[in-house]
Design a protein around this nucleic acid. Structure first.
Lengths: 243, 243
DNA sequence: CCCTTCTATGAATCGTGCT
DNA sequence: CAGCACGATTCATAGAAGG
């Protein structure tokens, strides 16, 4: 009996409506607010930042991606604290981030009160090179931890330390969408049948993966268009699972 | 005409003897001071921390690995600042670290005055599992950047964004030794013929890789036993290169 | 239907030149 | 001079097109 809930609205106020200790895992991919060495570059609009010249694809834009470093860290701390209130003790927490925000993400996780337990790199072999004389930046990172102690859970088993997968257009429903396979791996950190919370659902890949892996899902997404896409994909995932 | 210098002695005082702008790259693997969630655990001796129960290998211990987080960051900042004085403008800087010290390492790199440019994960497929319900921590990280601006260098070419390699006992001459193939990849960030500085040479793998790839090497190592091992391996690498 | 060839693209980065 | 817009660059991979 898979089930999901998706709310259209702002993350923090949505989280405040949820009761204490009512979910089993937090897995989310917040806006990174990266994209340049300097503040000015970071404050370009998301489509400008992520879509390079000549690209024809027309993804919907998303907001919340233009904070500076300090306010970004504070903002993550705020909503993550609220997530931790909503999570049961021992719940795993997974936050996606890029190399530039990785240190701020681990700071925010710990400031919010979670125990930081590791990093799971997601490697994109087809990433674009940075330039001659430089290393490619072909990775994103899942920073993970837990709400307090995390006793061993035999029913979950041993999870991998990294994930290698290229991005496929057909599996990308959002400017920053994650591959479904990647998310299927990540949601396994939640015990089977448990409820996974994602306050930045985007096109809903976390939820789709959760349903396909036999977990429940509760999410929020601010943008109405993304919300519609996510709702459709979640409904499809339920159907697919039943078949 | 490959050449190397290796000094037996403490890193910071060694660095102070070097002239300004005399090396082309900094690549090093300092003691991580990680290994436990709490200070008390971190201050166990290195052999206790890294050698799991039942293991018969008897690596030489090394010092400088029992600092707490704040003093570790300060310590890295100090010697790295001195390295940057010794490096020519635009020189690449590469510091190895584990997941726990990654945020402190990027802080220290930037505090010392370098521009942080990325992370190159080194993935160890054979890593030990952490426990059921947890992600494996099978990665270490090379944090890299440069002394100021870093113009494109065609002669260096495009470098990879990550490296996958298991550790083989035969290629491990030190408790925390890196595989030679990994280091051969990393030293390529230095222009051919340039001088690579490593103030924590350990068993000399950075130097061996540098010589094999046609770069020069200058290093320091505190421990006399490690220093002897490194000296022998460097001499062998020179011979091997000539053949 | 399978294999080969070709084309499109990516949470990018830098240097240049204009305002 | 500082700030910002724009073009050039790169290659592994997916996916389409062709044989």
């Amino acid at each position: 009996m898979s089930s999901f809930q998706l709310h259209q609205g702002e993350a923090l106020s949505f989280l405040r409506t949820l009761p204490d200790a009512s979910v089993d895992a937090i897995i989310t991919d917040p806006p990174y607010s990266s994209g340049g060495l300097h503040t000015a570059q970071r404050q370009l609009s998301p489509t400008k930042k992520y879509v390079q010249t000549g690209t024809q694809r027309d993804y919907n834009t998303f907001s919340g991606d233009n904070r500076d470093q300090r306010s970004w860290t504070l903002w993550v701390t705020l909503w993550l604290s609220e997530c931790l209130r909503v999570a049961k003790p021992g719940s795993p927490v997974v936050l996606f981030t890029d190399w530039r925000q990785l240190p701020s993400t681990t700071d925010a996780m710990q400031t919010a009160g979670a125990t930081w337990r590791g990093i799971v790199p997601w490697l994109k072999p087809a990433g674009r090179p940075s330039g001659p004389g430089r290393f490619r930046n072909g990775a994103e990172y899942a920073v993970w931890g837990s709400k307090g102690d995390m006793p061993p859970r035999i029913e979950v088993g041993y999870l991998p330390g990294y994930h290698v997968e290229s991005i496929r257009q057909s599996d990308k429903h959002h400017v920053t969408g994650k591959p479904t396979e990647l998310m299927r791996t990540m949601v396994k950190v939640c015990s089977p049948g448990g409820v996974i919370l994602d306050p930045f659902a985007g096109s809903g890949t976390t939820g789709v993966a959760a349903l396909l892996e036999g977990r429940q899902f509760i999410g929020a997404e601010l943008d109405p268009t993304n919300c519609d896409i996510a709702m459709q994909r979640l409904a499809d995932a339920i159907t697919q699972k039943k078949e």
